[in-house]
């Protein structure tokens, strides 16, 4: 059980690290498109890692409720499909309405 807790903690730490990196990238990057680079990837993997770690925790601690992990699996699946699609849609809307991408050497927006 101790080993399971260590593995779950590692998953949670990785997920929180990527979520924090996504937030810092949202603050630091110079324009809208590069900010979406930070958030669209880091949030997907960060949320997925956290939910997967909790799924392992559930399998070893609450094994008499075997149907609940299916919801978590569906949640991971949905995040990995919906999040890139939402990123792509918002980016397409911005590109069609004429938001200029930032080039190297310009002032940050």
């Amino acid at each position: 059980m101790f080993l399971v807790n260590v593995i779950v903690t590692l998953f949670l730490a990785g997920g929180v690290f990527f979520l924090l990196v996504g937030s810092i990238g949202l603050l630091r990057f110079p324009d809208f498109y590069t900010r979406l680079h930070a958030t669209g990837k880091c949030d997907t993997l960060g949320g997925g890692l956290i939910i997967f770690g909790l799924l392992i925790y559930h399998l070893f601690h609450y094994f008499h409720y075997p149907l609940v992990p299916v919801r978590l699996l569906f949640l991971i699946f949905f995040i990995f499909i919906a999040n890139p699609t939402a990123t792509h849609t918002v980016m397409k809307a911005a590109y069609r309405t004429g938001v200029k991408p930032w080039k190297l050497g310009e002032k940050r927006q």
């Binding site: 990527f18 990196v21 810092i24 990057f29 930070a38 990837k41 880091c42 993997l45 960060g46």
Partner: peptide, 10 residues
């Protein structure tokens, strides 16, 4: 990809 983005952010 995430390690790459984390490197570029940090």
């Amino acid at each position: 990809a995430n390690i790459d983005v984390a490197y570029r952010v940090l």
